[in-house]
Design a protein around this nucleic acid. Sequence first.
DNA 1: GCCGTTTTCGGCCCGACTGTTTTCAGTCG
Length: 592
Amino acid sequence: MTNLEVAELLRDIAAAYQLKDETRNKFRIVAYQRAADSIEHLSSEIKDIWDEGKLVEIAGVGPSLAKHLDEIFSVGSSSHFADIFQGLPMSIFELMKIPGVGVKTAYKLVKELPIGDKDPIGDLEKLAKKGEIAKLTGFGEDSQFAILRSINMVRKAVKRHLLPYAYLIAEKVSEWILQNKHVVRVEPLGSLRRRVSTIGDVDIAVATKNPGSVLDHFVSYPKKVRIIEKGVHKASILLPGGMQVDCMVQDPESFGSLLQHFTGSKHHNIALREYALKLGFSLSEYGIRAKTNDSDKGMETLKKFKTEEEFYNFLGLDWIPPELRENTGEIEAAKNHQLPDLILLSDVKSDLQLHSDFDVETSHDLGASSMEELVDMANRLGYEYIAMTEHNPSKKGHSNDEIVKILRRKQKKVKELNEMVNKEKVSVKRVFNSLEIDILQDGSLPVPESAFETLDFALVSIHSSFEMTKEAMTGRVLSALSHPKVKIFAHPTARKLNSREGVEIDWDKVFSFCVENNKWIEINGDPMRLDLPDFLVREGVKKGVKFTFGTDAHHKQGMENMQWAVSVARRGWLTKNDVVNTKSLKDFEEML
DNA sequence: GCCGTTTTCGGCCCGACTGTTTTCAGTCG
């Protein structure tokens, strides 16, 4: 079972408890939901954790849950879970996948209508179209229509959006909001502000003294498909392409609290509120109140915050950078003044994966910009050095001698380039001659030994045979990294967001190998990759791994994607010192 | 059912919006 499957199972158990005796099981239900959340966000497979006998070390999993899960993994089912599901049609849990349909609604529908276990959502859709739902007590035409619309959304399964696209949307909607004269300040928040690799919906906060006018204006956004909801504090609209935009408004006096609340993550906020409770405070988007038994008294003691810094400081915490707010130890670190000094875009002195249009006769993509254009862009970005890392020449159709010949030609071209930058007084002082080399299925590299001599260093990466066992894949990668000229493992999981899962690798082994043998791991800034993923970056840096940044630009404009690599690094708790690209040219040459 | 820098017992985040209701339940983030 995958982490997601286990999480879904635990959520279904929680739902079943809600139906059986919600009052008595109130906190047991919460416990199952928390365990589900925790397991869904694990950075390793729960099956592996079970193998090591460490289930109880997962946050939210105690002796009882560990016992039931152990039964699931060893026997394939749990008698206790079976008891809880006893007498409940499985169609209930299927219907809960429809947004807006929770456990109570699903139960009522299954009980009142002829819905089978085979295709419950299909059955429900047919009944809704016949108008059968609206006839039930507690339902009406509106809720029936909402269910039909939600079923459509499940069918379409709107994918999460890439960061730059979400940024663009946030920018355009913010511009629209700013046209309202009552707007004091507009800030895109949520997962966008935390720089998560993919964005579900865009959240925008507005400071204003006139919330009604601002929300009216917001929902009149010309490009919207429809208004999803609208109240006095917040509203949501749907845009073409399935992007949802939420807008929350707040008085400028309390804007710091709103920023904190609406940036999330949900898990960070829950943990922060629990932490505050122990200090005797209750947190919300309005501010902080002292917790008293007398609820009337409590109302009078709301403390407001104009800025986030004041909000966190009031709780005895350092201000926590948004990228760290995932409840993975940041609150503890903020209390002990041990938050990392995160790397900034301005610390970056180089781009270590670039593809020019110099024809190396590769079977992969060539770049679209000339080496000169890439150098020009690097100068504009203020870099000290860059690396030309075209793909290796194709093995098919080339003899070893021909490959060497092609790479000597490239070596000569880069040499001329270096003579040019040395003559002109520009920020780029050196262009490295490198190559991105395929790691073949057996771990070998499709470049003859004498060709390596033309290179300053090489990158290796996976472009084929993605489905291998973890052991085989790990051996394949370590074999490639062993070559003395190979310095960087580029886009290491080979994932493509929304289209391809990353490969399976024993990261512990690869990280240790890199630390011991002075090899580096790339954080690829291509918005479709963002690879190594942030949670693995965090694990790597704990082991002492050094990282490189590469935009993988195949056009000079692509070099502006460096900001996304920095985002991933910050989410992985990296400081300037953990990233090779922040080193001066002299230090980099020594490290090579 | 989980958890501990007040606790191994007694707590468990906080609030908004919708639809169907006559005061609230259900769902969501």
